[in-house]
């Protein structure tokens, strides 16, 4: 009886992981990528002047710096290293 239960729970765990790996993980990666992209765009609107794009309220946006400072340098690197927007977009879709 006890043995049966542990075997059952093993199967259940396997099913869970299988479901997660097959259906959830990849999809969630896409959503997360989308979320990060939106945030990158937001950073552009907030701190565009750091890249040379004028911003009418850059002075007021400085007060957001304490919360975004950590992201700022990697973001700048990402923005400056962008090469193919199409390839970037295409990478979001699952072709396999």
């Amino acid at each position: 009886m006890k043995k049966d239960r542990s075997a059952l729970s093993k199967i259940w765990e396997f099913l869970c992981l299988f479901h997660h790996g097959t259906f959830v993980d990849k999809r969630m990666a896409v959503v997360r990528k989308e979320a990060y992209d939106i945030n990158d765009n937001l950073m552009m609107l907030l701190f565009g002047d750091f890249l040379g794009i004028p911003n009418p309220i850059s002075y007021y946006m400085l007060e957001l710096l304490p919360y975004m400072a950590e992201d700022l340098v990697p973001w700048q690197r990402r923005m400056q290293n962008r090469k193919f927007i199409i390839a970037e977009k295409a990478a979001q879709y699952d072709f396999d």
Binding site: L62, Y67, E70
Partner: peptide, 23 residues
């Protein structure tokens, strides 16, 4: 909130915003 190293790294950019038109 953030480490001194990061503050140092973005100091220059702060200066830019601070002297921007409209400030």
């Amino acid at each position: 909130i953030v480490s001194a190293a990061i503050v140092d790294e973005i100091k220059r950019q702060i200066e830019i915003a601070y002297t921007s038109p409209g400030a």
